[in-house]
Amino acid sequence: MFEARLAQGTLLKKVLEAIKDLLNEATWDCNENGMSLQAMDSSHVSLVSLTLNAEGFEPYRCDRNCSLGINLASMSKIFKCASNEDSITIKAGDEGDTITYVFESPNGDKVSDYEMKLMDIETDHLGIPDTTYSCVVKLPAAEFQRICRDLSQIGESVTICCTKDGVRFSASGDLGSGNIKLAQNANVDKEDEAVTIEMQEACTLTFALRYLNFFCKATPLSPQVTLSMSNEVPLVVEYKIGEMGHVRYYLAPKIED
């Protein structure tokens, strides 16, 4: 028996929005510690790793480890039926091939339940080693979204150059080129608006904007986003999910032919 209730159901709605355009289907791995998901996009260019800790749910019950294969587009469709104020409960039996979602209004006057078929998905989990990155940039998530959107007008790729002075995002294409520079500003009044850079070594990497724009669908989850980079290894784009977890996107850098 698996049962997990999240009072702030809107968080789960945002989680689905953050992954459903990148992943068609994925397996939620559930154990006593919480729910997690790891999946590559269909072209195997990027990897999504998502964790929701059991402590964030009330109640959370997972009698035995289970893997729930889910069509994320279908799950997202059903979650659109939940109001932002609703609590969301996810239930799955030990033997069943279905999952049930229960949406409950804050005063309990309205309760909806939806049942969905589970899928058999073959999943190969990848080991993601703990890595010390050369540059870790934290910036407002909305700013990062804006940069990716704006530079998509110019080219297909963005080159991110990080030094101790700041971070520069550059794109070029048939119409010309564009550069956006952000200086470090850790001293702003509001913590959420800060741009901070922790740097061991400067680095310059190029990434496909198409994927970064997919990652930016997670923007409503968190006021800040963290970009972790080292030369010649995948970029990590991380959004916190409230106090209960995170979604991390890994994107392989583009390399010169």
Binding site: L47, L126, L251, E256
Partner: peptide, 14 residues
Amino acid sequence: MSAQKSISSFFQPL
């Protein structure tokens, strides 16, 4: 021109 590597080439299967 630049090429896109697969993400799985960076991580080992578990």
